[in-house]
Simulated assay, not measured.
Amino acid sequence: MTSAALICAAAASFLVGGGPRAPAALPRASRIIAAIDYKDPAVAAEFQKVQERPIELVEAEIEKSGVPVPPSLNEMDMRLMLVELRMRKAGTMPGGGKAAPKKPANYGSKYEEALWEKPAFKRLIDDYRARGNTNALNLATEYLNSPRQAADRYAGTGAYDETVAAIDAAMSAKVEQQVTSGRVAFGGFPAAMGEAAIRMTLEGFGPLASLSVDVSGDGLSCRGAAEFETVEAAKACIDKYDGVDMGLGTTLEFKAL
């Protein structure tokens, strides 16, 4: 019997006859079974490895990854859950070779922007999704898009304080940018500085090939773009100034182009 056939036979046996654990029609289990292609050689090979492990070790490995195992989940579903977790972690899940989603030209919300621009926040959200923490996901969305509404709806509990602390930490985590050219975009300088002062500040890292500065619509800050003559100067500037608090709720933003 082939590995793929072995999986199908095992699945039928457990789902019809049950195992040491009672069969359960849990949403999480159903999604896993539907997501696994039993005929895929990579799935079959990984399932063979998982099938050889005692169920206690299977459960321990799943929980070690941070995913809770429902007590009513049957053994077959549990083994398939571990297959999916292993393959997703290794990047070998069937369909994993599909093109990555394209970054939107404009963000529809602050939450969407954070998912693209803040890697630590994206990891936090992925963790909430993996653990099925719907409450934390809902809070994260509202907290970024409408902080006051989130506080009115969820504040006053330990879970709220803990989740908000995790979100704030992820949002403030320094983003390590890939700097491959001397070009940078910036924002957050006080409008009173003007182009001459901004040029002097940036040239502290190295000569500029070009600089453009525009005053924001509210007349309070400046944003623009600059091109250093070397990549090293651009990286040093980003490392020094990106995320610096300028006071009065203004933060400098530097992005590699």
Rank of each mutant, 00 (worst) to 15 (best):
Ala225Cys: 10
Thr157Gln: 02
Ala100Val: 06
Phe121Trp: 06
Leu248Thr: 10
Ala11His: 14
Gly217Pro: 03
Pro41Val: 07
Pro23Asp: 12
Leu248Asn: 14
Met200Phe: 04
Ala35Pro: 05
Arg199Tyr: 08
Met81Glu: 14
Pro68Ser: 10
Ile7His: 01
Gln177His: 03
Ala159Met: 08
Ile55Asp: 09
Val43Pro: 02
Gly17Asn: 12
Asp40Ala: 15
Tyr128Pro: 01
Met81Phe: 12
Ser216Asp: 03
Asn135Cys: 05
Ala35Gln: 08
Ala155Asn: 11
Val83Leu: 03
Thr92His: 08
Asn74Leu: 03
Val50Asn: 08
Phe189Leu: 01
Pro94Val: 15
Lys240Trp: 06
Ser146Gly: 09
Leu73Lys: 01
Glu63Met: 13
Gly204Pro: 07
Ser65Ala: 15
Ala226Ile: 09
Cys222Ile: 02
Met93His: 07
Gly156Lys: 04
Glu56Lys: 13
Met93Pro: 04
Met76Ser: 08
Pro207Trp: 09
Lys235Phe: 01
Asn145Ser: 07
Ala140Ser: 12
Val164Pro: 11
Leu137Glu: 15
Glu59Ala: 15
Gln177Tyr: 04
Ala35Asn: 08
Asn106Gly: 12
Leu57Ser: 15
Asp245Leu: 10
Ala100Glu: 14
Leu144Arg: 03
Asp127His: 05
Met200Val: 13
Gln149Gly: 06
Glu63Pro: 03
Met246Ala: 13
Arg183Trp: 01
Arg21Lys: 15
Gly17Ala: 07
Leu139Lys: 13
Ala24Arg: 04
Lys49Glu: 15
Phe14His: 13
Leu115His: 03
Asn145Tyr: 11
Ala197Trp: 05
Arg88Ile: 08
Ala29Gln: 12
Tyr107Met: 04
Phe47Val: 04
Gly224Ser: 04
Ser13Arg: 12
Ala196Gln: 11
Lys64Leu: 10
Arg199Leu: 06
Glu75Gly: 01
Asp127Ile: 00
Ala34Thr: 03
Leu15Gln: 14
Leu257Asn: 14
Gly91Gln: 03
Leu211Ser: 06
Ala25Pro: 07
Gly158Pro: 10
Asp77Gln: 12
Pro54Trp: 09
Glu84Ala: 15
Gly219Val: 11
Glu227Arg: 10
Lys89Cys: 03
Ile238Thr: 06
Ser212Met: 14
Cys237Gln: 05
Ile32Ala: 06
Ala45Asn: 06
Glu142Ile: 15
Ile125Pro: 00
Glu227Cys: 07
Phe189Arg: 01
Gly19Met: 02
Tyr111Asn: 08
Ser146Thr: 00
Ala10Cys: 07
Ala136Phe: 11
Lys103Arg: 15
